[in-house]
């Protein structure tokens, strides 16, 4: 029973990581850049929820506002900071992304201070099935994240715009020949990634109500790890990687002896997987262009 509880816990944590990892992997696949400021979008979502909750008292209004604000932020950052660097060296883009990350963290600290804010969203009762007892937020996160992953998969596979995203990620030039506006697709990708980050922020606050300006940093890095383990650029890869990291984390935290080393274990697994499969679990080998 305890095993099953931990597994469900892990799937739930993994669902949150997958939400974040999807943003990394989609942006990498389509804009060919590592957006290291992605984790901080979670934090911006968190503060948006905090502000709206304080003003209105409605947590779901806070979530909606966070999604909207994060989408606008993600799209604006892409336009202002990344788009002018298209074609520049990957290193320049990477440094810019790190700069944006610190800009967001520092701005949040200037506005809200460095003391943690408490954000109590909603209390959801635990669910008992026989001897199985699962916390309410775990169930909500698990179900919502899996539904979102399913919807995203269907969107990419079965809509015209979704297929255009695959086309741009595979060959931007050929996609343009088809009449696909690759800049619009890149903007859309940032919008989707940022919306998912806002949702992830909501899940994180459901689990633990403490909000700081660095709340996105560690989950961001771990989700990035998840995306790389799954195969960066691959949407199912980010889901698999996120869930895997979540399960590892849940089991690792269960044992008092191992718990302090949880992060180390996760990154160790990243190293091992990359040694065995450099392109990640579901990543494809890079094709050489003729």
């Amino acid at each position: 029973m305890e095993f099953l509880e931990t597994l469900i816990n892990g799937l739930s944590i993994g669902g949150t990581y997958a939400m974040i990892a999807l943003g990394y992997t989609m942006v990498y696949g389509i804009a060919k850049m590592l957006n290291f400021a992605h984790g901080d979008v979670i934090m911006v979502g968190g503060y948006t929820i905090y502000v709206i909750l304080a003003q209105t008292g409605y947590p779901f209004l806070g979530l909606a506002a966070a999604i909207l604000f994060c989408v606008l932020l993600g799209v604006a950052v892409e336009k202002v900071a990344y788009k002018p660097l298209r074609g520049a060296s990957p290193l320049a883009v990477l440094i810019t992304a790190i700069g944006v990350s610190y800009l967001l963290q520092s701005s949040a600290q200037m506005i809200f201070g460095s003391a943690p804010k408490m954000v109590t969203l909603v209390h959801i009762n635990s669910i008992n099935i026989g001897a199985l007892q699962i916390e309410g937020h775990v169930v909500v996160t698990l179900i919502s994240s899996f539904v979102i992953m399913l919807l995203l998969t269907l969107f990419v596979k079965y809509t015209k715009v979704g297929r255009a995203m695959i086309a741009v990620s595979e060959d931007k030039g050929a996609a343009q020949l088809m009449g696909i506006n690759s800049n619009a697709i890149i903007t859309l990708t940032f919008a989707i990634g940022s919306a998912l980050a806002a949702v992830a922020g909501f899940f994180m606050l459901l689990k633990s109500p403490s909000l700081t300006n660095t709340m996105g940093a560690m989950p961001g890095i771990k989700a990035f790890t998840a995306a790389v383990i799954g195969g960066i650029g691959s949407i199912p890869g980010a889901m698999v990687g996120g869930i895997l990291i979540g399960i590892i984390e849940a089991f690792s935290l269960k044992s008092a002896a191992i718990a302090p080393y949880t992060n180390a274990i996760e990154f160790l697994i990243l190293i091992v997987i990359l040694l065995v499969r450099p392109s990640g679990i579901l990543g494809k080998k890079r094709r050489e262009k003729v």
């Binding site: 695959i166 086309a167 595979e170 060959d171 030039g173 050929a174 020949l177 094709r287 262009k289 003729v290």
Partner: peptide, 9 residues
Amino acid sequence: PEGRRIFQE
């Protein structure tokens, strides 16, 4: 285009 550049996936 040269090299066909069909969408492989």
